[in-house]
């Protein structure tokens, strides 16, 4: 495949689109939380206000160069991942990258965060990041098994092909109707990867002062807010591409991705938090078991 001007434009445009959708996903998350708690919730542009305000702080407290680079890695990993996630009308470099690259790229932000937080030398931050990496170790195993199963089912690791196959056959060929057990395991793993309750071990406000975010202020916290909107977008769009046939057009695409995200968010605000060891035990037991059963169905 040749790199054309169109591809370059798509690679630039896709993260921007992802960021805007991600902001609305953050808004939806906060609105749902408010509704569940019988509150009104934040206004429409609240996520944007937060980010502009944080970047507009007048004194920025940096703890050194790795602290700065860590945040860039955390956001950059997701920016790179967006170019590999096809949206309606734009494929970017998805056909060249594929699922395996995407799985790697979604791990980069956690590692970047670990570097950045490490330099802050705050014990709460270090505890938070060790918990974040532990939970990454936990949810990555079902996540990789699910990705393997999907790739085996569609005999391709190319997201463009996977989406095209699902869209050609209609609902009966969607991942969710072909491999429902894997889809449940995938939802479980996605929920754990979002770091929301009950898997919220590393962002524990009352316990370790929001963990990795403890020394982040101003533009660093702003970077984390940007990262969060990318994180929500990446997780839900990846799930939609693997199991719900991607987006035929923008309306179904947005409906599906917001709908998928609403499930873990609604569950999240009804539950308290697990302990770290409980989380690892839970995630290595149930979603892994479901994913293995799902793979057995796919492979028979």
């Amino acid at each position: 495949m040749q790199v054309t001007l169109l591809t370059i434009m798509e690679v630039i445009l896709m993260p921007i689109v992802a960021f805007i959708i991600g902001l609305f996903m953050v808004l939806m998350m906060r609105k749902l939380a408010a509704r569940l708690q019988r509150r009104v919730g934040p206004p429409l542009f609240q996520p944007l206000f937060d980010i502009v305000k944080l970047y507009g702080k007048q004194t920025q407290i940096s703890h050194g160069m790795i602290h700065d680079i860590g945040i860039i890695m955390a956001v950059g990993g997701y920016v790179a991942a967006e170019a590999l996630l096809p949206v309606p009308g734009m494929d970017g470099i998805a056909a060249k990258g594929g699922l395996i690259t995407l799985a790697y790229l979604t791990m980069v932000p956690s590692l970047g965060l670990a570097l950045g937080v490490g330099q802050c030398a705050n014990p709460n931050g270090s505890i938070g990041i060790s918990r974040a990496l532990t939970s990454m170790l936990a949810y990555d195993i079902p996540f990789i098994i699910v990705i393997f199963g999907v790739a085996y089912q569609f005999s391709s690791t190319n997201l463009v092909d996977i989406i095209a196959t699902q869209q050609a056959g209609g609902f009966s060929t969607w991942g969710i109707s072909e491999m429902p057990v894997l889809a449940v395991a995938g939802l479980f793993a996605m929920h754990a990867s979002l770091g929301k309750q009950p898997f919220e071990i590393y962002i524990a406000p009352a316990e370790i002062a929001t963990g990795p975010m403890v020394e982040m202020g101003g533009k660093f916290l702003g970077g984390l807010f940007v990262m969060q909107s990318f994180q929500l977008y990446t997780a839900s769009v990846l799930y939609v591409s693997l199991f719900l046939g991607g987006g035929e057009n923008w309306i179904t695409f947005l409906l599906k991705s917001f709908g998928v995200l609403a499930i873990p968010v609604v569950i999240a605000y009804l539950f308290p938090r697990y302990r770290t060891d409980d989380l690892v035990r839970l995630v290595w037991k149930w979603p892994v078991m479901l994913a293995l059963i799902g793979i057995a169905f796919v492979m028979n």
Binding site: A34, Q37, R39, V40, D50, M216, G217
Partner: peptide
Amino acid sequence: TSRFDMERLGIQPMVTPRQ
């Protein structure tokens, strides 16, 4: 919380002085 809900004005609690 639900009675007066500061979040509708964009005010939310944070836990460390840096934030």
